[in-house]
Computed example of a mutant assay.
Amino acid sequence: MKNKIFALDLFCGAGGLTRGMLDAGIDVVAGIDIDTDAKFAYETNNIRQNGKSCQYIQQDITTISPATLKKLLPSRRYKKFLLAGCAPCQPFSRKNNKDTKTDSRKTLLEEFAKLVSSLTPDLVFMENVPGLPKLAPLIFTTFCNTLKKEGFKYIQYGVIDAKWYGVPQNRKRFVLLAAKTHSVSIPSPIFTEKTGFCTVYPTIAKLPVLKAGEQNAKDELHRSAGLSPLNLRRVKIIKKNRSELPEELVLACHKHTTGHHDAYGRMDPDKPAPTLTTRFFSITTGRYIHPTQNRAISLREGALLQTFPKNYQFHGSMQSIAKQIGNAVPPKMAKELISALVTGNKNV
């Protein structure tokens, strides 16, 4: 075992963070999540160092006992234990329109802190929305104070962009790295404006051509949502965004708005993709029109833009799979951040 480090992945979903940890040489014992459909993707695609699938525990994190999780912890042949996770970010998002003061999902970060205390890991990794410290200052401060109380002498956090680490997507995220015995820092960008970033077209160009509503016969994940005849007319006209539409094709809700034009926008093939949400399969929710074809990007294209391996399998409806993909931590980004946490980043 290369690093002799094992991990638990909280709020693991389909396994983006787990995939990144495995690629970084970490032996992921199990992932915990409430999503029924994600179990298939998590266990099918993620294999431990002993050749067995990473275990998926389908349970609400607020109801699972620390004693149950402690039974999963392996023997002392491992030198360190990493507790990692991305608590659902919607309660902390600026785009969330709900009253976040009463959103029960906010307690999930508090549950993460409780598990830090009860499971006593040596390393902690946390990922969330960029505005977390400002949007939930008390909860975030409590989380950091818990880490300090449990002996974490080295804590680094900040906002990064996934495109810095080889993800062909503009995706800003808040990350926290914590260790008890060695200094840590967020790794320096591998890709910059000077070097150029990974972009959309090379990432998805080799996939077979699809029409709106079609599914590829050899890859069931390479399927796109259907379009109404009216929306197909719009898509055929749009080269960049909906401002190119003639008056008769402009949606009533768009006629009096001065906001951004991401909805009904076409991806630029020579730039990183826009941030993929859980609705990236719909042209109505963002700049998700394929760069050269007259349709929204497919589920497989979304998975590749999130840097899932090209043969990564998923289960569920189109909406469910898109949610699994859109909510995931991009594996390539995860690998770089976890590697820095484990070894201690020298680029301080």
Rank of each mutant, 00 (worst) to 15 (best):
N3Y: 04
A7M: 02
F11W: 01
L17Y: 06
R19H: 08
R19D: 13
L22Y: 01
A24F: 05
I26H: 08
V29D: 07
I32R: 07
I32G: 09
F40H: 15
R48I: 01
Q49T: 07
Q49K: 12
Q55G: 02
I57Q: 12
Q58V: 05
Q58Y: 00
Q59N: 13
Q59W: 00
I64S: 08
K71I: 04
K79G: 10
K80N: 13
P88W: 03
F92D: 15
R94Y: 01
R94D: 13
R94T: 14
N96T: 03
T100H: 12
T100Y: 04
L109Y: 00
F112E: 11
S118D: 15
V124T: 03
I139R: 14
F140S: 12
T141M: 08
C144D: 07
C144K: 15
N145V: 01
K149W: 01
G151M: 02
Y157R: 01
K163N: 05
K163V: 04
T181R: 08
H182D: 13
S183I: 01
S185I: 02
P187A: 08
S188H: 02
E193D: 15
G196L: 04
F197C: 04
T199C: 09
Y201T: 11
Y201E: 15
P202E: 05
K206R: 05
L210E: 15
A217C: 06
D219G: 05
H222V: 02
S228C: 11
L232W: 00
R234P: 06
R234G: 12
S243V: 01
S243A: 12
E244P: 14
L245S: 11
A252M: 01
C253N: 13
H256C: 06
T258A: 12
T258Q: 14
D262C: 11
Y264W: 09
R266G: 08
M267T: 02
D270Y: 03
A273V: 01
T278N: 09
R279G: 11
F281G: 02
Q293L: 10
G302I: 02
Y312A: 12
Y312N: 14
Y312C: 13
H315N: 14
G316I: 00
I321S: 10
A322P: 05
M333I: 06
K335H: 10
I338W: 07
V342S: 10
